[in-house]
């Protein structure tokens, strides 16, 4: 099988892992949230890539009469990802609100310092 067949997916995997790495390794909460976003967005790209058919066009029907003659990409993953994007922005908004409250309560948003302050 051709290496290029999966090239697209591989790039997505690298992006995902990059995001996950930021999330795990960084101590700053905002940085963590950004990492999460990168990770999620990479998953979105993965879904969209699998909907693509080479030579196909966007799933908006041209003319009712022309149906069948054109090749369309699969609309279902698009719908799923629309939903997932909304979910991710909602999560992000909530996370940022939490970060603001944490900043107010602790005066910092670095994970280590917070752990330090919580020790009695």
């Amino acid at each position: 099988m051709n290496i290029w067949d999966s090239f697209n997916y591989w790039v997505v995997m690298i992006l995902m892992m990059n995001g996950l790495y930021i999330l795990i390794s960084q101590g700053n909460f905002i940085k963590k949230i950004i990492g999460l976003t990168v990770f999620q967005t990479a998953v979105f790209i993965f879904f969209i890539s699998m909907a693509k058919i080479t030579g196909a066009t966007a799933p908006i029907l041209k003319q009712a009469t022309e149906q069948g003659s054109t090749l369309y990409s699969n609309p279902l993953p698009h719908v799923l990802i629309l939903t997932a994007i909304v979910v991710s922005i909602s999560t992000m908004a909530l996370a940022l609100a939490l970060v603001i409250r944490i900043k107010q309560a602790y005066g910092t948003i670095e994970e280590e310092e917070i752990q330090h302050k919580d020790q009695p």
């Binding site: 979105f44 969209i48 909907a51 693509k52 196909a56 990409s73 990802i81 994007i85």
Partner: peptide, 25 residues
Amino acid sequence: MDAVDVAFTEAAVGAVVSTLLLLST
């Protein structure tokens, strides 16, 4: 990738709303 609707949303959400929220945070 032919996902125009998703692209529209991503541009609106990822590039506008999330940036805005992040910046205000």
